[in-house]
């Protein structure tokens, strides 16, 4: 899994590539936590290149969403592959995350 972060307009955009599973989810959670700890509260997580995500990845995203909401921010998701979208839907998480088809739309939503 590779993670890169860049500031675009009013959002911090974190792009993730590869597999998010129980071996890699802690790295994702730590990277997100660093943004929240640095009070970067408007975060876009670009899932376009995430080929696979297990519940460990979902856990990392939910804990970040809770943390960022406490500082009046939001973690918004964009461009999930059909596989990742299925996992989100099955887990009942599509109602708690703001989900956008493209990175640009997610960024502009802030």
């Amino acid at each position: 899994m590779d993670i890169s972060t860049q500031e675009i307009k009013r959002a911090m955009v974190m792009t993730v590539k590869g597999r998010v599973d129980s071996a890699t989810a802690p790295d994702l959670e730590n990277a997100l936590k660093q943004l929240v700890d640095g009070e970067k509260a408007q975060i876009v997580l670009d899932l376009n290149d995430v080929e696979y995500m297990s519940s460990a990845g979902l856990r990392a995203m939910v804990s970040t969403l809770k943390a960022v909401k406490r500082i009046n921010g939001d973690l918004r998701l964009c461009a999930p592959s059909p596989r990742v979208a299925e996992v989100l839907r099955l887990a009942g998480l599509t109602s708690i995350f703001n989900l956008y088809p493209t990175q640009a739309e997610a960024v502009d939503s802030f």
Binding site: S54, S55, L58, V62, K69, L90, A91, S95, I96
Partner: peptide, 16 residues
């Protein structure tokens, strides 16, 4: 489909 504050991701593995 709970509210965020009540959402936990425990138990999802077996559900999946």
């Amino acid at each position: 489909n709970k509210a965020l504050e009540e959402t936990t991701v425990g138990g999802l593995g077996i559900y999946f």
